[in-house]
Amino acid sequence: MQKLTLDERLNQIESKISEKSFRENKGLGNEVGYYVFDYDPRQEINVREYIKYLKDRINNGNKDFKIIEVDLFHLMIQILQEEDYLDAFFDLEKENGFFDMADSLVETLGLDETDEQNLIISHILQNDLTDSVLFLTGVGKCHPIIASHNILNNLHQVLDTVPVVMFYPGEYSGQDLKLFGTMDSHNYYRAFRLV
């Protein structure tokens, strides 16, 4: 069987998420659907442009649902600005290096927590997610601070009302996430491949 091109896969997203059964999670038991759309990281700009186009088309069209996009990197920066921590983390990186700063940032954002202490998750949940599909983007931009499997696992524990699609610049085998196609996360995650 011939492998689909990125454009062919992107062009299948709208029909897939427009299906009422997709948004109502028919056939998936009582759990909300969590999906991964993996792609070659060299195609990042094409994927971003397509998401922008699709959001505009769905959100300004006659659809009975909307797309909520959360760029994890932009959300991380927004939270740091709101808490007035951004400059402090720049200074910490200059003084102690990236990895020390990253460890402190994980702790400050509560990224290992599953409750409201996880500032990324709590900000995502502040969106009005009624009749929507949640797109998570910016995965590559926030690596290694925000681990995608961590966000999916923690979000899965508190959000079961709308489908979630993570756009992943790497490979997803159906069990393992491999960021940028080379960095094996060694973390099992159970999600469906979107296309």
Rank of each mutant, 00 (worst) to 15 (best):
R190H: 10
S15E: 13
N127I: 01
V36H: 02
N30F: 12
T108Q: 10
K63V: 00
V164M: 07
V165N: 08
Q2H: 12
L72T: 03
S15M: 09
G97E: 01
F22L: 07
Q175E: 14
D184W: 08
D176N: 14
Q2E: 13
L155H: 01
G140Y: 02
A147L: 14
G33S: 08
L72G: 05
A88S: 13
L54F: 05
Q175K: 15
F135C: 02
N25D: 12
N60C: 08
D7P: 00
V158G: 09
E19F: 06
K141N: 12
Y35R: 03
K55M: 06
T161Y: 04
D64N: 14
L6I: 11
S104R: 11
T114W: 00
K63W: 00
I151P: 00
L72E: 03
E44A: 13
N11R: 11
T5N: 10
V36F: 04
Y39C: 11
S148K: 02
L177Q: 03
I77S: 08
F22I: 05
Y85L: 15
L136M: 10
L72W: 01
S18R: 11
L75D: 03
G138E: 02
K178S: 07
S132L: 06
L28F: 13
Y189R: 09
G174P: 11
D91W: 05
V162T: 10
V164P: 05
L136A: 12
N59F: 04
F180L: 14
E8W: 05
E14L: 15
M183L: 15
T108N: 08
E107L: 12
D112G: 14
Q2I: 12
D184T: 08
D84K: 15
D176K: 15
P163E: 02
V32C: 13
E95V: 09
L109V: 02
D84R: 14
K141T: 04
Y85R: 13
